[in-house]
Design a protein around this nucleic acid. Structure first.
Length: 305
DNA sequence: TAGCAGGAAAATC
DNA sequence: GATTTTCCTGCT
């Protein structure tokens, strides 16, 4: 199936969106970006104000794509809310059109569990070898693609086999998290309906179960809420965003955090994470997550240390 | 709460 | 080619 989406009335950059470290299954081949999403292969090419789309699956239609790429978000609201200072102005000018996507929730959770202590190229490799090994194959244009594996399959995989996908110590985490999802301990659609604070609590443990979820801390929870549940006030803080806050927004930080972040090897405790994240959320407001993603990109582009 | 380990690849020197 | 860093969390 082929179709087009007009972008005349809304800022959008395919490249900045797919390559901003939110999603890990997109690859550029020549003019086209290829990805596997929700049971099908998707293919995108942007030419100015037109987004050309092709897909193996009828269900991945234009309304699906608009939702997936975050095109339904009214950027005028985002801009008027988040444009508070010259740093934001610079970041939005530089990466104009970058959108927060709305990804499949289980895949998003799994991807960010793998992301701990890692880097983007490696995360992509882990996700793709997991998919090749455990995901159902899908032929498209003469190439075999693989869907992202289901929780059931990963829960049944052995840790040593998972390790062979280059996961290292993350293998045990992903197995446990998959099992929790499979057992219904995390009900994503229920989480997505809660308000942000409750949703984070729920993801982080207590709601449906007794046991702590291995491998899901506040940062991973924030990524899942922002990138797959449409909670734009979530403000994940990773090393790059922490550096950006330290460099551009020192006045938002308590003295204690300033000192810690300036130290040689900053290690944030859970308490530190919450104070950082909530300081940023109250400064940037309901679309803080957008501010976060632009800061992430700016921080990397400017090579902050 | 602080301190540390974890595991492999990228980035950097 | 060696060292440092890497979209962090769990355990003690």
């Amino acid at each position: 199936m082929q179709f087009q989406i007009g972008l005349t009335d809304t800022p959008f950059s395919l490249e900045y969106t797919l390559d901003s470290g939110q999603a890990f299954r997109w690859e550029r081949k020549g003019e086209w970006w290829y990805g596997v999403v929700s049971g099908g292969v998707l293919k995108f090419r942007q030419e100015g104000d037109v987004l050309y789309c092709e897909t193996s699956d009828e269900k991945l239609d234009s309304s699906f794509v608009r939702r997936y790429l975050g095109l339904e978000t009214d950027m005028r609201h985002v801009l008027s809310s988040v444009m508070k200072d010259s740093v934001m102005t610079r970041a939005f000018q530089k990466f104009y059109g970058m959108r927060i996507m709305s990804q499949e929730r289980w895949e998003c959770l799994a991807s960010f569990v793998l992301a701990t202590n890692s880097n983007i190229p490696r995360i992509k490799r882990m996700v793709s070898s997991l998919s090749e090994r455990y995901g159902p194959p899908l032929e498209y244009e003469g190439t075999t693609h693989h869907l992202f594996p289901t929780p059931a399959v990963l829960a049944d995989a052995s840790v040593s086999e998972l390790e062979e996908c280059g996961l290292g110590y993350r293998a045990a985490f992903i197995k446990r998290v998959a099992a929790s999802v499979e057992e219904g301990r995390i009900d994503f659609s229920e989480v997505a309906m809660l308000d942000y604070e409750r949703a984070r609590e729920a993801l982080l443990s207590r709601l449906f179960g007794e046991k702590l979820l291995l491998g899901v801390g506040p940062k991973v929870a924030d990524c899942v809420l922002l990138f797959s549940c449409g909670m734009y006030e979530a403000f994940p803080v990773d090393v790059w965003v922490a550096r950006a806050l330290l460099t551009y927004y020192p006045s938002l930080l308590e003295r204690r955090l300033l000192e810690k972040l300036s130290s040689h090897k900053p290690r944030l405790s859970a308490g530190d994470y919450y104070s950082l994240s909530s300081a940023a959320r109250s400064y940037f407001g309901p679309y803080a997550g957008y501010a976060q993603q632009y800061l992430f990109m700016l921080s990397r582009a400017e090579g902050l240390k």
